[in-house]
């Protein structure tokens, strides 16, 4: 069975790009554009990994991660953001990997593989 990824990205074109590219890698991708929709999806379905942006309107990625940690501690989380400078702040406690958005998705794909094969 394919591994299931929950993707949270408020930028619609990026959301579409990631969804398509990760699906091509053979993952089942559920893409949502805000934190509330992500929490809803988590309540409904089991996921093997979460990829989330940080800066989003409404609840941001950090609030989302805090909520998730309160419920499920076992899902690996990747922060995928345009901000380089957040890395030190959040890597230690909030996420298993931190990827700075790039037009090449290689790093994101590699981190996903690494965490799912663990």
């Amino acid at each position: 069975m394919n591994k299931r990824i929950l993707l949270v990205e408020d930028e619609k074109p990026l959301c579409l790009l990631y969804e398509e590219e990760l699906s091509k890698e053979g993952y089942d991708v559920t893409a949502v554009t805000d934190a509330d929709a992500a929490l809803e999806a988590l309540d409904k379905d089991p996921f093997d990994l979460i990829v989330t942006d940080i800066r989003m309107p409404g609840k941001d990625g950090i609030e989302l991660i805090t909520h998730i940690m309160g419920r499920r501690r076992d899902i690996p989380i990747i922060i995928n953001t345009a901000y380089q400078s957040y890395k030190e702040d959040f890597m230690t406690w909030a996420a298993d990997a931190y990827v700075v958005k790039s037009s090449s998705l290689d790093e994101l794909k590699a981190k996903i593989r690494q965490l799912l094969d663990r």
């Binding site: 074109p13 345009a82 958005k101």
Partner: peptide, 21 residues
């Protein structure tokens, strides 16, 4: 500077990603 990084990076990533496709 921080905000612009974010604002500009997102469209650039989209442009690059869809161009690769």
């Amino acid at each position: 500077a921080m905000f612009v990084t974010h604002q500009i990076r997102n469209p650039i990533v989209a442009i690059g990603g869809f161009a690769d496709q």
